[in-house]
Design a protein around this nucleic acid. Structure first.
Lengths: 340, 340
DNA sequence: GTGAAAGCGCTAACAC
DNA sequence: GTGTTAGCGCTTTCAC
């Protein structure tokens, strides 16, 4: 009877290496090798072990393996919220790229509230991920310190801070604001206004736009600040308010395509021609932006590339390879369409 | 020297219970208790241990803890793709609810391709999560078998299959199709058509709609099938094609709000009045749906409730509580707006 | 090509 | 209240 002690299958416990080993008449380590280094085994043994794995339904416990080998094959990503459409491409690409290489993604939301950020960090660091991807997160000094102290590779994305914690893949938000302002100026617009979400990155685009406007002699640019996440409704309300403040405006830059769609909608409701009366530009190049009438001029950022590169960087680090460009500017492009 | 052997701080290794224990002059288990059962300790010891934790920067290794206690505090969620806006609310609510109770989310994408589904399942089961949330996933028989064999609690969401693997939180897709058909019929529409994504759940809504139409004597309902993910552009193209097939149609039901926005756009481009000429209805009640002109009649499903309830169910299970309603119908509602 | 022993970092079980 | 011992399931190391 004592022999059957470990055969506690079905009683809550899953099959372990030992169960498989016993069945295949090999040692535990041979089972491990059948999965991690199959070419170290003779074909015959390999076959026998595989059979035993199949018939026991054995699925290796990655907690145990990760503990021993100090390789968790887990990557953590933190976004402010997943409900905004902005970072989805990046997360999608990240998950896919990780999956291809046998890594998994753990997702955390910092949710614009700093209070829980520390608990979230502990939960992440505690799982000893091979890397952490920070996306659109404005982290406290304390958070930065803890991340650095943890020694876990970190990639900050969707931004290019002057002194990243570790690695960074992003672009210049101020640069986008400037570029958009110049774009509108070149097309003859002289009285632009902005509708912007109140998150940090949108704010930086706004500042960039205003600086460029000043330089180009377009004077002060009125801004409507709306609470993130931005919506179509706030875009409509924003245009309405802007028209009161400055009835002669000839261009509206929006910090998201959803806001821009709101502006298009409100303009249509009021009989204002776009781009005849006012030009409208968005940010994000969402799925609907090409299809609306008039089609929406916007700023495109390659979120997929950001996610995929972040995965590559972290896996390279995990596997001991050097990163050629730890700070990578992926740039952006203005997608010229009918609305501006 | 031998005494300092374990003090490998900085050399890649993070602080462990032992490091903290040594510093606080207690045993390892006392450190463990300071974190997991603080009221079992005297205030003085607790204080000392906390100080040691702070000064070592100790973050418990959850892999080790999870291995020993067989409690991973990890929940896995699988979605077909995160890039569609449909499941976001659910994932957001799930993450938030888990976070509140000290659990984390691991995210996987089945990506419409069944091939990698098995590898994904192994990666998930291998981490011994306390539960798995399946969202909008059409799983193979083999996948069902493996999940059931794993003994891990499973919640299937956004659907109500007749024989769930374990638990289910969703609603009837066929019921939505029927309800929408009746809604249009009541409003005097007699020649409806559909534009539908080709995923399984959309297909079920379509079938429900057609069955109801037949019962109400509206004859065959033409359907345009579009590839998932659905876009505004495919909605525009869909309406164009429908008008060729059936120039006298008076209502269009869409399997997503994005498709419906495409239909509104195309109708506008062609000078067709909505709802005067044709009525338009969507599905999903996305952020923009209330704000467009005309505002979009659509079907609302409480994705937040689904996510939150899924988290509750799995945590209840993990902590040994019974689930009163393992199969929960959260229903749906038709949001009556201007377009229909 | 295969195995035995040891131990990753933590906590359950049982002392005291 | 606190400590000792053992062991979760795996893989590293060294042996043959």
């Amino acid at each position: 009877m004592a022999i059957r002690t470990r055969a506690r299958r079905g009683a809550g416990g899953a099959a372990t290496v030992k169960d498989v080993a016993r069945l295949a008449k090999v040692s535990a380590i041979t089972v491990s090798r059948a999965l991690n280094a199959p070419d170290q085994l003779s074909p015959a043994t390999l076959e026998r072990v595989k059979g035993a794995i199949a018939s026991t339904g054995y699925v290796p416990n990655l907690l145990a393996g990760g503990l021993r080998s100090a390789k968790s094959r887990l990557v953590a990503a933190v976004v402010p919220t997943i409900a905004g459409p902005v970072f989805l491409e990046t997360i999608q690409a990240l998950t896919d790229a990780l999956d291809e290489k046998g890594y998994q993604l753990m997702l955390g939301q910092s949710g614009y509230k700093t209070s829980r950020e520390d608990a979230l960090l502990d939960a992440i660091i505690g799982r000893r991920p091979v890397g952490i991807v920070l996306t659109g997160m404005s982290h406290s000094a304390e958070a930065r310190r803890r991340l650095a102290a943890s020694g876990i590779p970190v990639v900050e994305t969707w931004d290019l801070s002057p002194d990243p914690i570790d690695m960074a893949i992003g672009f210049s938000h101020a640069g986008i604001g400037e570029a958009l302002c110049c774009y509108l100026h070149e097309r003859g617009r002289r009285r632009p206004a902005l509708i912007s979400g109140d998150d940090e990155r949108a704010r930086r685009r706004t500042t960039g736009f205003q600086a460029a406007a000043k330089r180009l002699g377009m004077g002060d640019v009125p801004v409507i600040w709306v609470a993130a996440p931005t919506t179509l409704a706030s875009g409509r309300a924003g245009l309405a308010e802007l028209l009161q403040r400055r009835p002669d405006l000839d261009a509206v830059g929006c910090s998201s395509d959803l806001l821009a769609l709101g502006v298009l909608t409100e303009a249509h409701a009021r009989g204002i021609a776009v781009p005849g009366g006012i030009a409208v530009a968005g940010f994000g190049n969402l799925a609907f932006s090409a299809g609306v009438i008039p089609s929406l001029t916007t700023v495109h950022v390659d979120g997929t590339r950001i996610g995929r590169t972040a995965a590559d960087y972290l896996i390279d680090r995990a596997e001991g390879r050097a990163i050629a460009q730890p700070i990578l500017d992926v740039g952006f492009s203005i997608v010229r369409r009918d609305s501006a």
